[in-house]
């Protein structure tokens, strides 16, 4: 029993849930008013777009790459949603669909030319930023009604963000961890040579994962526009850092294809709560950004410790 509890696999799986519980407890202690439907709803609203962006990043990390453009991409989607999707829905859908195709094309490009995804996605972050600014040069725009309605739902007893997060986690978990092709996708990150030898196409797996990332990125942007009052190109600037932190906090590895969708969603929620938490402990606004970088560092430090335990066995 002791062996299971202290086994690295267990620690790795429990870390996101544990850190979420600890953070939630601290928040309730600091500000008991948050322990209410309204309080939770307010704090966790933004968890939805962040969780979706985290799942997008998870797809890319599963195939041993990294997406440094997810923040800019979500910002682009927000701007498109606030303009085209609101005014001429058909055009909006087309543009967003094209965005997903671009992501798929990037996956193909990275695979075929053996390019480092860091540099490519860093370049893409400027492409998305530029496109977002072209679409919406100054903050403004308006959210499509149906999205705003969805995001403001108030189901009984359980705040909407919690339900939404549960659905996201369930869908991602099912698609990646339960389906047969999902195991092939993850396998292509764990031992690409073996997957290829067995006759599967590595090009297809890479393209599939990047396209999924693009799809979840779109969902992230759509949910975000329903929550913010006005859109602007850099509204999701921090999402790159959050999404990476969320995947790692959730028990994922940068290489090797070992990821946990449920853990990633829990990690995303934890990071969402870090913002109100920092406010409640009166971190001066100057240090807010730094604190969030520090959180990523702490998360990685914890993981490094767990990995060292793992290696010593």
């Amino acid at each position: 029993m002791i062996a299971t509890v202290t086994s690295p696999r267990f620690l790795r799986a429990i870390l996101p849930a544990l850190s979420l519980a600890v953070l939630l407890a601290l928040i309730f202690y600091l500000n008991p008013r948050t322990m209410s439907y309204v309080g939770l709803n307010l704090m966790l609203n933004l968890a939805i777009p962040i969780a979706l962006a985290t799942i997008a990043q998870l797809c890319v990390i599963t195939v041993n790459d990294l997406d440094l453009s997810i923040g800019a991409y979500v910002g682009f989607v927000v701007c498109v949603a606030a303009t085209y999707l609101h005014q001429t829905p058909a055009l909006g859908v087309l543009v967003l669909g094209a965005g997903i195709l671009v992501y798929a094309a990037l996956g193909a490009l990275i695979h075929l030319r053996n390019l480092p995804s860091i540099v490519v996605t860093l370049g893409m972050s400027f492409v998305w930023l530029g496109l977002a600014v072209l679409v919406l040069p100054t903050p403004g725009g308006k959210s499509p009604e149906w999205i705003a309605w969805l995001m403001k739902l108030k189901p009984a007893y359980i705040p909407f963000p919690i339900i939404a997060a549960a659905i996201i986690a369930a869908v991602a978990w099912f698609a990646l961890m339960r389906t047969s092709y999902g195991s092939i996708l993850r396998g292509s990150g764990g031992n690409p040579k073996a997957i290829e030898r067995a006759g599967w196409s590595l090009l297809k797996t890479k393209v599939a994962m990047f396209a999924l990332a693009g799809f979840f990125g779109v969902l992230s942007g759509l949910s975000l526009i329903g929550l913010t009052t006005s859109a602007q190109a850099n509204v999701a600037e921090r999402y790159t850092l959050y999404s990476i932190a969320g995947v790692i906090l959730g028990g994922g590895d940068f290489v090797g294809g070992r990821v946990s969708p449920v853990g990633a969603v829990l990690g995303a929620i934890t990071l969402t709560l870090s913002a109100p938490f920092l406010t409640f402990i009166h971190i001066p606004p100057d240090w807010q950004i730094g604190a969030q970088g520090a959180i990523l560092i702490i998360v990685l430090a914890l993981r490094a410790i767990i990995d060292r335990v793992e290696r010593r066995r």
């Binding site: 893409m124 492409v127 930023l129 530029g130 977002a132």
Partner: peptide, 11 residues
């Protein structure tokens, strides 16, 4: 515009 500048640099 600024948008095109970003776009061009990235491309």
């Amino acid at each position: 515009s600024a948008g095109l500048r970003y776009l061009a640099t990235g491309l």
